[in-house]
Nucleic acid binder design. Sequence first.
DNA 1: GTGCTTGCAAAGAATTTGCATAATT
DNA 2: AATTATGCAAATTCTTTGCAAGCAC
Lengths: 139, 139
Amino acid sequence: MVSTIDRKSELIHALEDIGCRVTGPRVEIIQEISTLEGSFTAEDINTRLPALGRATIFRTIKLLQDTQKLCKTVLFDGTVRYSLDTGFHHHHLICVKCGDIKEMRSMELERVLRVAAKKIPDQVVGHSLEIYRICSNCS
Amino acid sequence: MVSTIDRKSELIHALEDIGCRVTGPRVEIIQEISTLEGSFTAEDINTRLPALGRATIFRTIKLLQDTQKLCKTVLFDGTVRYSLDTGFHHHHLICVKCGDIKEMRSMELERVLRVAAKKIPDQVVGHSLEIYRICSNCS
DNA sequence: GTGCTTGCAAAGAATTTGCATAATT
DNA sequence: AATTATGCAAATTCTTTGCAAGCAC
């Protein structure tokens, strides 16, 4: 299990690595993201950090996506949510009630997807798979 | 192969079935959708039928979704595209260059997905799978 | 000090809604 | 004739941008 502190410094270092300054607002946003267990929306951060400008929140989220540490997911209804990213290829378990997103990996699924890709005449460049569920909090 | 005419009357009947009137604007929109081979955006229809109000286009598209004959897909970049729907469970083959969407079905994939779902402790209510490719027009 | 960042407000883009008018059944 | 549908324009929602002032390095 990764601690909040570890996640926080990992994200801060990731920003530094792409040449960003470590500023107060950015640290505050990273703090919130690290504390949140599941996925979140830009609005979630805005609500928790009302002193920050929305633009800063969107800009920081974008930077974190650039570091590959944050993953953007557009849900079936068009809602945009973000979740921490391990950096490995993975799929999402999405709760249809609260929108929470968890990562999921399965070698078996990947294998079948590779086989399926071979049957497609065009060049396959990737895939995304979302499994919809009702999470334990919501059921 | 389904003809444009068949698709058109199928969509018109589908609207009638949910208690909608068959109006000029709706028929025009259905005509365009039936003629288009792949997927399309609301803007595509608006461009082809500039005499119609945008609101009418969005409202008609929504009605067609209600009939289950039209499928809404939100792409990785947030773009919204629509495509004709067979009504059966299926997945999407999406071209990363032009956004074109084709339906795809695979018993093998479904089987593996069912097995994967059983391993998830929560109640799984569905899934969606998109395979990204470069279509023959774009490659 | 220099240049990257911030917050505000304004601009955008996409979609929805209210309402008077027009068309369908 | 009774209702539903349309088109326009205004309102929404979410996100981005321009810019002067404020920080990090």
